[in-house]
Computed example of a mutant assay.
Amino acid sequence: MDVLSDVITAMRVGLPHSARVDRTAPFGRRFPSSGGAGFHVLLQGAGWLIPQAGDPIGLEPGDVVFLPRGGAHGLADSLSTPLLDVPASLSEIRPGSDEVQASTGGPVTVMLCGAYLLDRSRAHPLMEELPEVVHLPTTAGRHPGLRAALDLLGGELERSRPGTDAMVPALLDVLLLHILRAWFDERSREGAATGWTAALHDPAVAAALRAIHGEPERQWSVEELGRNVGLSRAAFARRFTTLVGRPPLTYLTWWRMTIAARLLRDSDAPSNAVAGQVGYTSEFAFAHAFKRAHGRPPGAYRRQDRAREARGGSSS
């Protein structure tokens, strides 16, 4: 089981959104905060990303900026250009909206802008460890998969063709995984690997995570997980807890409850079936564990989530 893909699947709600944005200088936009994870990719020209906190980031063609928590931010051709408020967040941007209309005048800046809709009620610690702004500057020879995904996505958004409606969401999913992979690889390459960056690059801990994610219903013990990766029980528990931030079985329970919430939200499976899929033979024990994790028993959680969807809301 690919842990990174599993994490994204568990958090995703709805389809991602993206649009090609053409701007002519001078331009300045202030985007409100969003429940999703926003991104900007500079295709042509130059510009600045201005976060709420921290220094402005100069952008060059090929640069990728990812905002994991959808923080409010500005985009401008120059730091001296005033920022005008944008009524819609990146989670709502669509091709053909006012935010993607080109104008005439000075030098043109072309960007891909969009967002992923994520359920923040069960944000995975892997995502929470990311900074407010992830900046991946264009670097010759670095992250060829990321560059290839951007080329394909840019082409689809530039000119609609048969299959575009299906291809764009798929390419956006690929882009997100490449962004995260590039970030973790950069951290490891720089010698700054700590926490989940180190966990994903640690052979023993990564193997244990794959085992847990691959068979969450299995009655794992710390001893068995350690034996599978060639470590003693004590050495494995210490290493896993240091890198992941939780003891192995605590993480296993947390992940089971995350899967259970997704199944209750996205399927009509009865509670006892959901319990079995996440390793509980007793529906009562499952309901107790679920309420402890989510604050509501499974049935109430499902009813409230469906009612929120009927009102047009989201869990993000």
Rank of each mutant, 00 (worst) to 15 (best):
A115Q: 03
P216A: 02
R227E: 15
P247D: 14
A102H: 14
A25P: 04
G38N: 12
F27P: 08
E283I: 02
G313T: 12
A273H: 02
T250F: 00
G145C: 03
Y116Q: 06
A115T: 08
L15P: 02
M167G: 00
G154R: 11
T81H: 02
E217D: 13
R69H: 03
A293N: 03
P95S: 13
G74V: 06
Q304L: 14
H135R: 10
A208M: 06
A208F: 09
R69F: 13
T281H: 08
G114Q: 11
P298S: 03
I50F: 05
L171V: 14
A275M: 01
T250A: 12
V205M: 14
P162E: 12
P131I: 08
P144H: 10
Q52L: 13
L112A: 07
G299I: 07
W48Y: 15
V133F: 01
R69V: 13
F290M: 06
A260G: 07
W255P: 02
T164K: 06
G74W: 06
A260W: 02
A198M: 13
Y301G: 00
A310H: 11
L171F: 09
L225S: 02
H40K: 01
A211H: 12
A198V: 09
R29V: 09
V133K: 01
S80N: 08
V110E: 07
D268A: 03
G195F: 07
L172R: 08
M127E: 09
V110C: 03
T9D: 15
H40R: 05
G154L: 09
L249N: 01
E132C: 01
V21D: 00
R142P: 00
D173R: 10
S97I: 05
D6V: 01
T104E: 14
D305Y: 04
T104Y: 12
L146V: 13
R311M: 13
V64G: 06
E224M: 10
F286W: 10
S267G: 06
P61M: 04
H213W: 11
G74S: 07
V229I: 09
A88F: 11
R161A: 15
L263D: 04
A149E: 03
G96M: 08
A123D: 14
F240S: 04
P137H: 11
V3W: 12
G36S: 01
P216W: 09
H124F: 09
A88T: 13
A102M: 12
H288Q: 13
E283G: 03
L157H: 02
P95R: 09
A211S: 15
R159E: 14
L150K: 04
P216C: 02
R122N: 04
H288E: 09
V244N: 08
G226F: 08
D151H: 06
S282I: 04
G62N: 11
L243S: 03
A115C: 15
F66Q: 02
G47R: 01
A260S: 11
P95G: 07
R147P: 00
W48V: 03
P32T: 04
I179G: 04
D165I: 08
S5I: 05
P87H: 08
L175N: 11
D151K: 09
E129H: 07
A269S: 07
G313H: 09
E224A: 11
L146Y: 03
S121M: 03
G47E: 02
T139F: 01
E186N: 00
A310I: 10
T24Q: 14
G313Q: 14
S91R: 06
R292G: 00
E158I: 03
G114T: 13
A307N: 12
A289S: 05
